[in-house]
Simulated scan of single mutants.
Amino acid sequence: MESGRSSHAGGRVSGAGMTGDSKKDDIVAGVLPGNHRFLEPTKAIKTITDMAIWEKSEAYIEYTGFIATMNEAIKGKPLSVDCKISENLKNLINMLDKIEKLIDAFPPIEQPQRFGNVAFRDWMDKVRSNSTQLMQEAMPPSLHLAIPELKVYLEESFGNSTRIDYGTGHEMAFVMFLCCLFKVTFLQTEDSVPTVFLVFNKYLHIARKLQQTYRMEPAGSHGVWSLDDYQFVPFIWGSSQLIDQPKIYPPGKFLEDDIIEKYSDEYMFISCIKYIKEVKKGPFAEHSNQLWSISAVGSWTKINQGLIKMYKKEVLSKFPVVQHVLFGSLLPIRRFPISH
Rank of each mutant, 00 (worst) to 15 (best):
I61H: 15
D82L: 14
Q241A: 11
V315A: 14
P246G: 10
L316P: 04
G220D: 05
S317Y: 04
H36R: 02
F174V: 00
A59E: 03
S239E: 09
S6A: 02
F284K: 03
H170V: 03
S161L: 13
E137F: 00
M1I: 15
C180P: 00
D229S: 06
I103F: 09
V184A: 10
S7K: 15
H324C: 13
C180F: 01
W300Q: 08
F254S: 03
K274P: 04
V28P: 01
R5N: 05
D265K: 05
V322Y: 04
Q133N: 15
I61M: 07
L291H: 04
A68S: 10
L89W: 01
I260V: 09
G238R: 04
E40M: 06
S295C: 05
S131Y: 08
V297R: 15
K313S: 14
Q290S: 14
A59S: 08
D25T: 05
L150H: 08
K75F: 02
D82Q: 13
I294R: 05
Y267K: 09
P320D: 12
L242S: 05
C83H: 12
A68G: 01
D265T: 07
L198M: 14
L32W: 13
G30I: 00
I53M: 03
Q323S: 13
E149L: 04
E87H: 13
V224N: 12
N289V: 09
H144Q: 15
A9S: 07
S7P: 00
E55A: 01
N117S: 08
P246Q: 13
S142Y: 03
E261I: 03
N35T: 14
E55K: 13
P112S: 15
Y153H: 12
E217T: 01
I93Y: 10
E137N: 15
A105D: 14
N160S: 12
E72T: 06
G328L: 00
Q323Y: 08
